[in-house]
């Protein structure tokens, strides 16, 4: 992950987000009870190159959404720093906000049901000094880019559209303000099978046309493989493996990634091999390597010492003692 300057769009250093595990009210404070924290994202350092699609995979609850939200400034880091083109986020948050967007899994939840498509799509432009005509032009342009006919949709409400059309509207809203970086949280998992590929192709088209940088969160390995340039694998708030898509798909290094691939249904493996053991607690994460209680290869060192990400082959990193020399 050595980054040399200009082609890196986003870099994080020791990014950490803790959530209060339960309400910490006045009484608790008076009683001096220790608050419990969920370590949703724990000391994560990643870097995303301009124009690349980075895919984040991992178990439910491993902190993928939280990491995505941190990157688009919807969540404030507990510690650590995010750099946009080398400048710390805390120094220019409003400039960054204009350049980032997020698209959610369920378009019905992310589009205001009471507004029509025109109002939904133009919303990002309302706070900018743009004439009405210009705004309309850009709404039309954005809808056209995602393959929707303005005259057909502009007066409709989200519930009058099909799932695929709704997700296109969400995309149109995301791209209308000319962002550089878009986080897509499970963009196709609420869609029907035959619609999924339409939306995936659209994402690729848009990226080729406008040179967006994507962070795609998904649990569908086939989607990940299709759309990714770079993959990050998360487990219990930590990045456990990263590499180019072909490296990770061909030769997953971390035992967790290997097991994940075996338990995810695809058209290739008929025999799913479910992971054994309990999912890890994020409040009291296992000591040492967080995966050791479920890892078939765990040995003594894994229970006490936390492995760091090491470069196993060029560009392919894993945080596992199987690969740390000593």
């Amino acid at each position: 992950m050595n980054e040399n300057g200009s082609d890196v769009l986003i870099r994080t250093e020791g990014l950490t987000k803790l959530f209060l595990a339960s309400k910490y009210g006045l009484l608790d404070r008076l009683a001096r009870a220790k608050p419990l924290f969920v370590r949703a994202v724990d000391n994560v350092s990643i870097s995303i190159k301009k124009g690349e699609t980075v895919v984040l995979v991992g178990e439910s609850g491993s902190g993928k959404t939280t990491l995505g939200r941190l990157l688009v400034t919807l969540e404030k880091p507990t510690s650590g720093e995010i750099y946009y083109e080398g400048i710390p986020l805390s120094k220019n948050i409003s400039a960054v906000r204009e350049k980032v967007q997020i698209v959610y899994q369920n378009p019905l939840e992310s589009l205001d049901p009471r507004l029509n498509i025109n109002s939904i799509v133009e919303e990002p432009l309302l706070n900018r000094k743009i004439t009405k005509e210009e705004r309309l032009r850009r709404v039309k342009e954005a809808l056209e880019s995602v393959g929707l006919d303005y005259s057909y949709v502009y007066f409709r409400k989200p519930k009058d559209l099909s799932g695929g059309q709704r997700q296109r509207v969400a995309l149109a809203r995301a791209i209308i303000s000319n962002p550089r970086f878009i986080v897509l949280d499970e963009p196709t998992s609420a869609l029907d099978a035959s619609i999924q590929s339409q939306v995936l192709n659209l994402l690729i088209d848009l990226k080729n046309r406008f040179n967006y940088t994507y962070l795609v969160i998904t649990h569908n390995i086939m989607v990940a493989e299709y759309i990714a340039d770079q993959i990050y694998v998360m487990y219990a708030g930590k990045i456990v493996e990263t590499g180019r898509v072909d490296q990770i798909m061909k030769k997953p290094l971390h035992p967790y990634t290997q097991l994940l691939f075996k338990s995810v249904p695809s058209l290739r493996n008929k025999r799913l091999e479910p992971m054994v053991g309990e999912p890890p607690s994020l409040i009291n994460p296992p000591p040492g390597c967080r995966f050791h209680p479920r890892c078939p290869y765990a040995f003594d060192r894994c229970r006490v010492e936390e492995p760091a990400l090491v470069e196993v082959e060029p560009g392919h990193f894993a945080a596992c003692h199987l690969y740390t020399k000593k």
Partner: peptide, 24 residues
């Protein structure tokens, strides 16, 4: 999503409340 995204657009909280939250 629509409230969170509005925050990204720089919409003020009061406006978000009257435009998105209260009506819904």
């Amino acid at each position: 999503g629509y409230v969170e995204v509005s925050r990204l657009f720089g919409e003020s909280s009061l406006k978000i409340i009257f435009k998105h939250v209260f009506p819904n």
